[in-house]
Design a protein around this nucleic acid. Structure first.
Lengths: 130, 130
DNA sequence: ATAATAATAGTAACCATTACTAATAGATAG
DNA sequence: CTATCTATTAGTAATGGTTACTATTATTAT
């Protein structure tokens, strides 16, 4: 009836803490080092369930595989197109601005905004040096 | 050397004008009614090239297939999760706000923002009535 | 016309993700 | 404890949007 806390789910949580915005495959490979029998499907299913439950964030990415963030608090992601690194951005002001955009869109389109998907891409300062 | 103007590309442009934010498959099916030999690959390739050239906009969608917009001018898209309809939103003020967000992200993450992908989802007024 | 080469049609491959199924294992009840 | 119930798993097959490939066609420049 109730949810069971499987060892696999704990391993996935741990992997999310150790890795920086990993993909499902990266989580899978990481766990496989200590527990070779873990199934990729199990990783996908748990990540999906955790994201749906609001325990983690899913970072959609269009062309490349989705990434996951152990930090479930609403914030933005900026990815470097050269090295792939993901940066977090968060501020009160930013949230206010986004809510204002929601309201504007609601008024102009009539759609009651329930979800926002945004991804910013560019070149990080490190990659720009080279 | 230079680009050639194929009949297929013209048909694709026309389909984009006739249809409302269609997917590649919808463009394909539409053209097939008058020209059954069109290839899905041709549709994908041309849409991709046109989007890359800035002639049209690609609307990424994560789970569902990408959609395309004949209106290449930068603007936002709001999709209804019930009926799937895509709404356009555009205003000077909105663009200013987005540029401000870019600048904020640049300062806080060091990433020079080159591309922005955003999608807003919710329920449209029509679907809310039911 | 002819040659050079974009662009196409048709099909196969790709790859992230989901679905499926028999086996496993953690909780619950007696 | 032991048996039962069922959530979860491992392993694998299937899905679906998209891209890659290749022989053929068609457009432009000479």
């Amino acid at each position: 009836m109730s949810k069971r806390y499987s060892a696999q789910k704990m391993m996935i949580e741990n992997a999310l803490k150790q890795l920086d915005h990993p993909t499902a495959s990266e989580v899978y490979e990481y766990i496989r080092e200590s527990y070779p029998n873990i199934s990729l499907g199990t990783v996908y299913r748990n990540l999906g369930l955790m994201a749906e439950a609001g325990e983690i964030l899913r970072i959609p990415s269009g062309d490349s595989p989705d990434r996951f963030d152990i930090n479930a608090h609403e914030h933005l992601h900026v990815t470097c197109t050269k090295c792939g690194k993901v940066f977090d951005a968060e501020s009160e002001k930013l949230e206010d601005v986004l809510k204002k955009i929601d309201r504007f869109l609601q008024e102009s389109t009539g759609v009651y905004i329930e979800e926002r998907t945004m991804l910013f891409q560019g070149v990080c300062s490190n990659c720009r040096k080279q």
